[in-house]
């Protein structure tokens, strides 16, 4: 059973990263339940129990709004990410919801070809293990506290 959960989490993570890295941002909110929580914060904030993050969303509609803003509203230079994800660490499973942690590295490549290690950290996830698993909560806790220029695309 645990092995099955691990495989589902790994598949979910791989599909999630692929959607963002392949510029199919419109699919990104679909990895979450409707009443989800998605936060990007720093390890310092997380450790200190500070709630505010760089991104703070408590509904899937807010994720839709972020995608719409990136597509239609915000000004930023063309860029793409490459998510390199570690294996999910399954912390527990209760009532069909898995608690898991997955380490990430995100490499950002800019329009002009410059490539940088943009963020490193871990996802703290609660995942509904349905037929198609969905994030109930995904907190991207970045080890880095400095963010170069801007963070447009989601982590």
């Amino acid at each position: 059973m645990a092995g099955d959960a691990l495989l589902r989490l790994a598949r979910l993570n791989a599909a999630y990263a692929d959607a963002i890295d392949s510029d199919r941002l419109e699919e990104w909110p679909g990895f979450f339940v409707e009443a989800c929580r998605y936060v990007i914060t720093t390890a310092e904030n997380h450790r200190a129990g500070l709630a505010a993050g760089l991104v703070w969303a408590d509904s899937r509609a807010m994720l839709d709004d972020r995608v719409a803003a990136l597509r239609r509203a915000n000004i930023f230079e063309r860029q793409c990410y490459r998510h390199i994800l570690g294996l999910p660490l399954l912390r527990g499973e209760a009532d069909g919801v898995a608690t898991a942690e997955t380490p990430f590295l995100v490499v950002r490549t800019m329009r002009d070809g410059r490539m940088d290690l943009f963020a490193a950290g871990r996802y703290l996830d609660r995942v509904l293990l349905a037929e198609a698993p969905l994030f109930v909560e995904r907190i991207a806790v970045c080890d880095n506290t400095r963010f170069d220029t801007l963070l447009a695309l989601p982590l």
């Binding site: 500070l50 709630a51 760089l54 506290t145 400095r146 170069d148 220029t149």
Partner: peptide, 10 residues
């Protein structure tokens, strides 16, 4: 304080 972060500006 409810949160902190740093933006590195070019």
């Amino acid at each position: 304080v409810i949160g902190r972060y740093t933006q590195a500006l070019p």
